[in-house]
Amino acid sequence: MNIFRLAGDMTHLASVLVLLLKIHTIKSCAGISLKTQELFAIVFLTRYLDLFTNFISIYNTIMKLIFLGSSFSIVWYIRRHRVVRRSYDKDQDTFRHFFLMWPCLILAIFINEKFTLKEVMWTFSIYLEAIAILPQLVMLQRTRNIDNLTGQYIFLLGAYRAFYILNWIYRYFTEEHYVHWITWVAGVIQTLLYGDFFYYYFQSWKNNVKLELPA
């Protein structure tokens, strides 16, 4: 464990907690894409298949349980909660996210480290995570309303993978085993996807104006 990975995990944890707190306290999911949340739940499900079979550390297990639990409860809140679900704007959340999954699955079948079910599922989760934010970014462009918490959520989510890239660089130079190039490529693509959001987020923060995404 190094400081970059810890910072990445804490930022990722903060992002899901910000979202969960927002939905739980104000009982609204306005501006939140259910499709992105469903994709994240699938990412954690397919990545943590070895949760009970492959013990790495207490920290690792607890964090996996938190990410699984939080992503599924966010999906439950938006789909099932009698108050929250009324604020879900499904006409704006139109990205056909299941279309996104097939290319990731096919790519994972052809490009992976080892052709075993667990490994293909893990690689699938890496590819899927890289593009899972797309429905949310599309929805933001459409609704143009970015309340502070949603803006912070997306910022933290983008920052976590940026910290992971620093972690991979650090591990490359300091450890004997390595992080697979698939993870590198997908992680860089994922962070780049947040690129324009980061740009507008910093602009709004610097000029102290409300966050606006161009149409």
Binding site: N54, I56, E176
Partner: peptide, 10 residues
């Protein structure tokens, strides 16, 4: 030699 892939990350 870089033998093992790191699989201890979240």
């Amino acid at each position: 030699a870089r033998d093992k892939v790191a699989k201890d990350e979240l």
